[in-house]
Design a protein around this nucleic acid. Structure first.
Lengths: 153, 153
DNA sequence: GAAGACTTGACAACTCACTTGTCATTCTGA
DNA sequence: TCAGAATGACAAGTGAGTTGTCAAGTCTTC
């Protein structure tokens, strides 16, 4: 078994984990006005600060059009606000409102609480290693895709 | 930072990796009659052998209705065949045809080949640890979901 | 500083994976 | 044996995300 096959074992498990975690996150959002993708936008704003719609889209690996819809909805819900962007006249910065900040922080705290149970029995060193591998994968897969799509179309 | 927060770092990376790997797999499927979900069905049949539609669905964490559609399409393409199930009169077993077997094997070999490049610079021990963590996550998240949805609806 | 290439906002149509719902048939287990 | 669960088959719906387009703004390069 070579390194490719070993790494394949990781990718094989990504889909189930993604499916299940999305379901778990979605269940926690039940009853609120939030959805999983909307939550993802709030997370990006929380972690990386105010930024433009295309910037969020790039970090989430989706199109800016999709993010625009989410941001519009978040603004209707009073969770984000747009403010002038000194670097671009039309492309406003999107930022969390105090209410958006609080909503996400509360939600996130509840999530990590539940994760403590899930983490039981897991070696912290393994978790750290897993993060390293996933970061590596993001970087390399992104390279792989951008290089192949430069040749294809 | 507690174990919950540490594990959250893993989940935060699942979505990007899923997105990017799905895109990479999809790009490789371009020009063929296969799609990513159809490929997933073939993989299950290849790895776990002949089984019924609901069985595939459970392993993929999707509904049997969705898998039924995929199996129908795979049968039209001559990649799978149904055969009588000694344990159930209506619920046939789905199995790869020789052509389906060959299609998947070829595809999979090409994928692991490309993964060798991606794996470069990665510690094999880290990869193994990552697999352990992901397996743990699948088990625990599944428990988490089934217990919560037993109380909810 | 002007021309061309790229980015962004805005609106629209569309695709695809997956769900939910239903009913008849088959299986399982107390 | 009989109620409850699983399955096939068909149908409709949902939601996340894409593709396309055009005008307005920004960047690059000469």
């Amino acid at each position: 078994m070579n390194e490719g096959a070993r790494l394949y074992a990781v990718l094989q498990r990504i889909r189930p984990v993604h499916e299940l975690s999305a379901r778990a996150v979605g269940a926690a959002l039940e009853g609120t006005d939030l959805t999983v993708p909307l939550r993802a936008v709030l997370e990006r704003l929380h972690d990386d600060g105010p930024q433009t719609v295309p910037s969020i889209a790039r970090r989430l690996y989706v199109t800016r059009q999709g993010v625009q819809t989410l941001v519009d909805r978040a603004r209707e819900l009073g969770l984000v606000q747009t403010r002038p962007n000194p670097e671009h006249r039309r492309s406003h910065l999107v930022a969390l409102t105090p209410r958006g900040e609080e909503t996400f922080t509360t939600l996130h705290a509840a999530e990590t609480d539940r994760l403590v149970t899930v983490a039981r029995g897991l070696d912290p060193a393994d978790v750290a290693a897993c993060v390293r591998v996933l970061d590596h994968l993001v970087t390399r897969l992104e390279e792989l895709i951008t290089t192949t799509e430069r040749n294809d179309p």
